[in-house]
Simulated scan of single mutants.
Amino acid sequence: MSVYNLSYCTPDKIPSEVLNYDSTLEQMGVGKSGKLGILQLKLENDPIIHKTTIKYQHYKVPLCIKRAMYLEETCPEMAYIYIISPSGGILQGDRFRMDISLSNSAKSHVTTQSATRIYKMNKNFGTQIINLNVDKDCYLEYIPDQIIPFRDSRFYQVSNIKVHDEATCIYSEILTPGRVASNESFEYDICYMKVKSVNQYDKLRLIDIAKIEPKRENVKSFGILNNYDVLGSVYILTPKDKLNNIQSEILESLSKTKSVIGGCTKLPNENGVLVRMLGSFVEDIRNLIYSIVGILRRNVLNISFSGMRKI
């Protein structure tokens, strides 16, 4: 029996708010062919060609990747990896899992080819596990496009980020109100996203949860989204000696952006930096995230960021 079964792709301890939607599917059942998306990726620096290369890859559609690309002139050894979903998004009963690890001083920028669409569901829910492991002296940017929850969709995502104290990882999320052009703003049932990070000794660095249930709560109230529609989060795990400059520059960047409000705070015990942003348009949040990537590259790698490239 293959190890890549339903239990392998299903998160542990799914919150009760999500399990409330667990029921027998009217369409393809949970775990059937085409419902389990798997991506395993190991990246290492190759000392012969002086580039980060894919040392191991395994994927199962509806998740796959293209070959590594080298697009950054200021950092030619950095591997750009594009995650692709031929199904176009997550359907009811889908269980996706991604395991990405970096070792031997690898440097990589990982993104999605397009937005993650969470399709309408009449039974059950969709889940995604993201496991990132960043070893000593490695550098990872995980910057996916936005999440678009369709009407009546239910989605649970858990991200486990293991980062060595002498490594760097930046991880971002953008949550939109839905298909605004189709008059589907905040018509989804639930979007529950949990981020947990530990260091190489499994010592806790952060736990952060964003749970939005538009049909059960007024998401436009003060203290939630207020007058804004788009939520952005950025998690930066990097050596402590870099944090003061990074935080200072991010706060300056936030102060200059009139279309987005946000804050930047150090994590307990200086384990990293958390940035939270609210805006009215995805592009404004995305541009600010790119600005933060540029700040991180400048402080950690002493290089510039020429901007995102989509293929």
Rank of each mutant, 00 (worst) to 15 (best):
M1I: 12
S2C: 14
Y4C: 11
C9M: 08
T10A: 00
T10N: 02
I14A: 04
E17D: 12
V18H: 01
Y21P: 05
Y21S: 03
S23M: 13
L25P: 00
V30G: 01
G31L: 02
K32V: 13
K32F: 09
K35V: 00
Q40I: 09
N45Y: 08
K51S: 10
K51G: 11
K51L: 09
K55W: 06
H58G: 06
H58Y: 08
L63I: 12
Y70C: 10
L71F: 12
A79N: 02
I81H: 02
I84G: 04
I90R: 01
R97F: 01
I100R: 00
L102E: 09
L102M: 10
S103I: 06
S105A: 15
K107M: 08
V110E: 15
V110H: 01
N122K: 14
G126R: 01
Q128W: 04
N131T: 09
L132N: 01
D135W: 07
K136E: 13
Y142M: 10
D145A: 03
Q146A: 13
I147A: 05
F150I: 05
D152C: 13
Q157C: 06
I161N: 08
K162M: 13
V163G: 03
H164L: 06
D165Y: 12
C169F: 06
C169M: 06
T176P: 03
T176M: 08
P177E: 00
V180F: 05
N183F: 12
E187N: 08
I190N: 07
V195L: 15
V198H: 10
Y201F: 14
Y201G: 04
I209E: 13
P214H: 13
P214N: 12
V219G: 07
L225W: 05
L237S: 09
T238P: 03
N244K: 05
E249G: 01
L251M: 08
L254T: 10
T257N: 12
S259K: 11
G263R: 09
T265W: 05
N269Q: 08
G272P: 08
G279E: 04
V282W: 02
R286A: 03
N287M: 15
S291Y: 00
R297A: 03
N299E: 07
S306A: 15
M308K: 15
